[in-house]
Amino acid sequence: MLNGRQHVGVSVTIATSLEDACAALTAEPGSLVLAGGTDLMVEVNRGSRRIGNVVALNRIPELAGWHLIGDELRLGAGVTFAEICDPEIAALVPALAQAARTVGSPQIRNAATIGGNIATASPAGDSIPVLAALDAVLELRSAEASREVPVTEFITGVKATCLMPGELIEAVRVPVLDGPQEFCKVGPRNAMVISVASLALLVDRSARRIRVGLGSVAPTPLRATQAEDHVSGHLDWDNGVPPRLEVVREFAELVASSASPIDDHRGSAAYRRHAVRILAQRSLTRVLNRVSPS
């Protein structure tokens, strides 16, 4: 009934299939893509975004739901943060569920989607550091083609992505790792906060690797690879003997030095660097307390 409405240059297409959405985007390449609306409508209400043609994605069955495929979790781009808080997902990717729970408020989490969070590509996007640490792969789709891009390559700058005209995020794939995970976020409250600094730390027992993703301390998703190398090499993976305090401190220092934060109204660069140092130390200590020898 509402599909393909055309009216004095403005149409709102409520796509009911992926094919529909791709066709609408091909027909009107400049269309605004609307997922949960929690970022886009703020700009529209404020008058900072003129609204033209819209393709709404929130009724596309292919974008909803998640599946476990082997040891990978595939989340449709339309999966909401409320859904990611689900205990079943939390058991598979704990840090992603922790991050989801810090997004906005219940009202925001009911609407906001993981695909929207990625496409908005804010340096403060709550899911981004976790996805970076997981080496998440995005499935992109247009009317003509589909391709896969790692999240760290997808986001090219502050609110900038390599998404091409007519292209959509269809799904996100992340590995299910063996080991505890932590997500930490700094902000003035526990809810409704745009992060000042955030950090995801994941233990990957089978690769004997600690993975660290940082948020709000660089224009794009950041992995603290030097810090990862250092700490992974110093852990006693066989017996689970906690590392010397020195190692934890060196790790935190390397995490802090990998950040390239800026001063803005939410915090100074110096504070952000300090904050990720503390988050690194805290989250490493927390996960190591939970790593028992395998």
């Binding site: 509402l2 609306g37 929690t38 819209v54 009202q107 609407a111």
Partner: peptide
């Protein structure tokens, strides 16, 4: 705050025409 299909959302962030149905 209103309920859309039983879930709380901020109605200011819902594009009205997409709430049809």
């Amino acid at each position: 705050t209103v309920l859309v299909d039983g879930q709380t959302v901020c109605s200011c962030l819902v594009l009205a025409s997409t709430a049809a149905g």
